[in-house]
Amino acid sequence: MIAQAVAKPDAKPARPWFSAGPTAKRPGWSLAGLPTNLLGRGIRAPEVVERFAYGLRLTREVLSPPEDYVLLYTPGSDTGAVEAALWGMLGERSVQVVAYENFGQVWATDVRDHLKLEPEVLTAPWGELPDMSRVDPSKDVVFPWNGTTSGVRVDNADWISDDREGLTICDATSAAFAMDLPWDKLDVTTFSFQKALGGEAGIGVMVLSPRAVARLDTYRPERSIPKVLRLTDKKGFDRTLADGVVINTYSILTIEDWIDALEWAKGAGGLPELIRRTERNYAALAEWVERTEWVAMLPDRPEIRSTTSVCLKFTDPRVAALDEAGQKAFVKRFKALLEDEGAVFDMEPHRYAPPGLRLWCGCTVETADVVDATPWLEWAFATAVSELSA
């Protein structure tokens, strides 16, 4: 097969940021637009606590979980939020972990090797979901709603029993604000500022159902829990966390950035519009994939394809013939070609994922930029393949 030359495109995306985290800032964002009057104030100052509480109220308003669900911040982004749930809640019941991408595998390792529990791990190859009917309602289950590193998402919550005895602990960091989450099925839901709304990194959010709060009130693991993961006081769940009090010192500038993102989301039309923006972006990229011979979606089944962290695989035989090291080198060259032109940034897959492409299509990305990126992907592919043949 002879490589066909592709002319370098004229137009570039106005905002060429397609990283899966941190993701693109919201349209119109500027650092100068963030309030700075509380910078340098103590983290326990009443005005600062109220500002953090306002951020939680806005988060609730945009996401619309049930009124009796509790929201709080955690250190360490989504990772810290998931770890806080694992360390503080697991051990009362048997545990299952759904691991169909990198982070599910990380949670399985944590539960097994660090908490010293014996989880049943439900796995699947990259681009697939495990058989979710195997989830046991008598057990606690830990699972990602959307696999940021695999481009796979859970397509429904029918497998979660309404009469479950265990807790459902859902890593929703690349699903929140982009997908419609079934709150009645979720007991612990976690996400981070820097995913779907393009916030700054370092702070995570937990959304706890009454069942999750009851677990914290009544269950005391025998293990020691580090302070940054500790959600309880002497009486049980530390309810001050739901009022804007934070576990340790957080960046006030980061919370101002989060509030800015939430106010934009609210003004744009709230969660329904955020989902529509995401789906429009995904549809634009999917239409290009459908008519492009050398690339395909990593997940074969359309119903489980992520609309945010869209993962693609190479189907061209010249690339497929390369070993894994060769394919990774091809991706590295592909990335360099695009970034040297300032056309598309951070389109490479997660380091443990199969070699290919990954483009974030969440709500802070503009559809026009997705469309303008695709000719650059074609140019970079043709250029990199011609170098293979040289």
Rank of each mutant, 00 (worst) to 15 (best):
A24T: 10
A24R: 14
A24Q: 12
K25C: 06
R26S: 06
R26T: 07
P27N: 06
P27S: 05
S30H: 10
L31T: 02
G33L: 05
G33D: 11
L34K: 05
P35E: 04
P35F: 03
P35T: 07
T36S: 07
N37Y: 01
N37A: 07
N37D: 10
L38R: 05
L38C: 03
L39W: 05
G40Q: 04
P46R: 01
E47A: 07
E47S: 04
V48M: 02
V48A: 02
V49A: 02
V49G: 02
E50C: 00
F52T: 01
Y54C: 00
Y54D: 02
G55N: 03
G55I: 00
L56D: 05
R57C: 01
L58C: 00
R60I: 01
R60M: 01
R60W: 00
R60V: 01
V62Q: 01
L63W: 01
L63E: 02
S64F: 00
S64R: 07
S64E: 06
S64P: 00
S64G: 00
P66R: 03
P66K: 04
E67D: 07
Y69H: 05
V70Q: 02
L72F: 00
Y73E: 03
T74P: 03
P75M: 05
P75T: 04
P75E: 06
S77G: 09
S77A: 11
D78P: 01
D78Y: 07
D78T: 08
T79V: 09
T79F: 14
G80L: 08
A81H: 03
A81Y: 04
V82A: 09
L86D: 12
L86R: 10
G88V: 08
L90Q: 13
L90T: 09
L90P: 11
G91W: 11
G91S: 13
E92N: 11
E92T: 09
R93K: 15
R93H: 14
V95D: 14
V95I: 15
V95H: 13
Q96V: 11
Q96G: 10
A99F: 10
A99Y: 09
Y100G: 14
Y100Q: 13
N102H: 14
N102P: 04
N102V: 15
F103I: 12
F103D: 15
F103Q: 15
G104P: 09
G104M: 08
Q105D: 14
Q105I: 07
A108W: 10
T109Y: 13
T109W: 13
D110L: 14
D110P: 03
D110I: 12
D110F: 13
V111W: 12
V111H: 15
D113A: 14
D113T: 15
H114N: 15
L115F: 11
L115C: 12
L115M: 11
K116H: 15
K116C: 11
L117T: 15
P119C: 10
E120R: 13
E120P: 06
T123Q: 13
T123W: 06
E128G: 06
E128H: 14
P130A: 07
D131A: 10
D131E: 14
M132C: 08
M132S: 05
